[in-house]
Each structure stands twice: as structure tokens, then as C-alpha cells.
């Protein structure tokens, strides 16, 4: 686990559309998260650009296709690609999602939820161990939006994550927006759910905005970070003792870049008073968050 830091780094997920602005405003961005798979089969030009980013920013490679929830071994070529990328950018850790994104011969095309039970825990742990062994770096696992229920689970997500952290020593990339979306869609108090997570293992936080479609809130990364998510961050901050980085994700409907810089600054401010803040109880913050409608960006 990375050492405790007084002020976590705050930055953005790197996207081609944002690249020019990111370079211009480099002084205001501490960390960039790069999509790992983009560089697995990259040519020299793409690697040159990556190297230039690594010179100026702390880069955190973030995978989409490890399919941590899959049964079976991780493809050795993927492990080697991950290792090379981490070495190239001097990554502090490698992250991917607690999800099923492929089965033998089939790329699902997105992250799909898994059932939480002992067998899936064993498979997830084996795949995480494989990456840890290949890279020699901490592995950090991210919670996803649960688009549908997969029957057969015997554990709740927080319980499963506690067991996974215990079994592998991995860190947690807490996507506060995903957590909030799951809770809002399921009618659960987000703060109560968040407080049940292994918060001491949280190394990184994701913040993003979602949209309502057909009665469900979706993690579209196409809207500003909503108020309930900011409130959750503030409420959780005192318990995130090992938090190293906060990344704001924006993949679509890009706003003027100063708006993203303002979100970075807001995250910094939210993180600073952590040591003096009084921890909030679920009852105090939960009501406020669950009653807010600001998540409805569309």
C-alpha cells in the first residue's frame, strides 16, 4: 500500500479531446489517469506522447478489460502488456474493475456485474494476484455501476470487497458516483453503503456525473459531478486515510476546460480539511443525500 499523504493528488482521466487543454493547464493538474488498453498495442508515436505525459504528470494506468470477475487465467500477453505499461510510466499502482467484461472468445464490450460469492472471490483474487506478480505493484480494484442483478450471490458488495482486500492486499478505487448511482437506483442510503466499504483500503477515488434514462441513473461521464457525490466525498474524507488520488472522469459532452479545472479545485478544497473534520454518521448525511435531486443531470 502506498504511504499516507497529507493531500491526495487531484486530476483528470486523460482523453484525446482534452489533451491540448491538459498540457496548457498542466500546473493545475496533479495526476492523470490513462486508459491502459490504449497503449497495449500502441505505435511509437502514441508511446512518444505517453512518455511526454509521464514527464509532466503522475500517470495512473487504468484498465477496462482485465475482467477481474472472470473464471480462468489472465492471458499472459495481457499481463506482459500491463507490466510494460506500468514500467514505462513508472505507475504507482494499476487499477481495473470488479466486473465481467469478457468470456472465452467473447468481448462483452462493457463492464457487467458479477455475483458475489466464495467462488467468484477465489477467481477475482487469482486474477489480482496474477497482476500483482507481473507488475510488482499494488493492484487497485474499482466498484462498477450494477446495471442488472446477477443471481446466486451470497455476499453484499462491501462484504465481498472486504474479503477481496484481505485475500489479496489490493487497494480500492472507490467510484463514488458508481456507488451513489447503485444506491439511488436500488433505493439504498449511499452513505450507509459507503461506510460499509473497506474505506481504509481506498487509494483512489473517481468522481463523475451521470444521467437519467428510462427511470434509471446511468454512469455516463457526460455531466458535471453532482452535489450528492460532492457531499459523499466530504462525508467520507475523514475515513479515507490512505487516499492518494482523486480523478474526475469526463468522457463526453465536454464542457469548457475551466469548468473541469473548477471541479479539480473543488475536489482539492474538499480534501484539505479532512484531518479536522468530524466524521459524519450515516443518519446525518444519508438523509441529505438521498433527498437531493441534483444527480438528475438530464
Amino acid at each position: 500500500m502506498a504511504p499516507q499523504t497529507p493531500f491526495p493528488r487531484v486530476g483528470l482521466s486523460h482523453r484525446r479531446e482534452l489533451d491540448a487543454d491538459i498540457r496548457v493547464h498542466a500546473a493545475q493538474i496533479d495526476v492523470l489517469e490513462v486508459i491502459a488498453e490504449k497503449y497495449f498495442d500502441a505505435g511509437p508515436a502514441e508511446l512518444e506522447r505517453l512518455d511526454a505525459l509521464a514527464e509532466r504528470f503522475t500517470l495512473v494506468p487504468h484498465g477496462l478489460t482485465l475482467s477481474v470477475g472472470s473464471a480462468g487465467r489472465v492471458c499472459p500477453r495481457m499481463l506482459e502488456s500491463i507490466r510494460q505499461l506500468c514500467e514505462r510510466v513508472r505507475a504507482p499502482w494499476y487499477s481495473d474493475h470488479l466486473a465481467l467484461s469478457s468470456a472465452p472468445g467473447i468481448d462483452i464490450g462493457h463492464l457487467s456485474p458479477i455475483a458475489y460469492h466464495r467462488t467468484s472471490l477465489r477467481h477475482a483474487a487469482a486474477r489480482i494476484h496474477a497482476v500483482q506478480d507481473a507488475t510488482g505493484l499494488p493492484f487497485v480494484i474499482e466498484n462498477i455501476t450494477e446495471t442488472h442483478a446477477v443471481p446466486g450471490g451470497t455476499q453484499a458488495l462491501p462484504e465481498f470487497l472486504h474479503a477481496l482486500v484481505d485475500a489479496t492486499g489490493c487497494g480500492l478505487l472507490l467510484d463514488i458516483t458508481n456507488l451513489a448511482i447503485n444506491c439511488i437506483n436500488a433505493g439504498i442510503d449511499p452513505l450507509r453503503e459507503a461506510l460499509a466499504m473497506p474505506l481504509d483500503a481506498v487509494v483512489q477515488v473517481h468522481l463523475a456525473g451521470g444521467k437519467w434514462r428510462r427511470g434509471r441513473l446511468l454512469d455516463t461521464h457526460s455531466a458535471p459531478v453532482p452535489e450528492p457525490v460532492w457531499q459523499l466525498l466530504a462525508a467520507l474524507r475523514p475515513r479515507l486515510r490512505h487516499l492518494q488520488a482523486v480523478v474526475i472522469e469526463r468522457d463526453a459532452e465536454y464542457p469548457p476546460f475551466p469548468d473541469l479545472l473548477a471541479e479539480i479545485q473543488r475536489a482539492r478544497l474538499a480534501l484539505r480539511p479532512a484531518r479536522t473534520a468530524t466524521p459524519v454518521s450515516p443518519a446525518q448525511a444519508g438523509t441529505e443525500i438521498s433527498e437531493s435531486s441534483e444527480m438528475c443531470a438530464a
Binding site: 473464471a71 480462468g72 465481467l100 468470456a103 472468445g105 464490450g109 457487467s112 467462488t119 477465489r122
Partner: peptide
């Protein structure tokens, strides 16, 4: 037992992947 369980889970996940994409 563990090996069989793992193998069966691959089939189960393949079913799900097929269900999602086909």
C-alpha cells in the same frame, strides 16, 4: 472439486456473455 467448479463457472460466464451480446 475446485477445478470442476472453476471450469463450470467459465461455462456459466460464457452463457452470460452470449446472452448480453447475441
Amino acid at each position: 472439486r475446485q477445478r470442476i467448479s472453476g471450469t463450470a463457472m467459465i461455462e456459466y460466464q460464457s452463457f452470460l456473455a452470449r446472452l448480453y451480446t447475441d
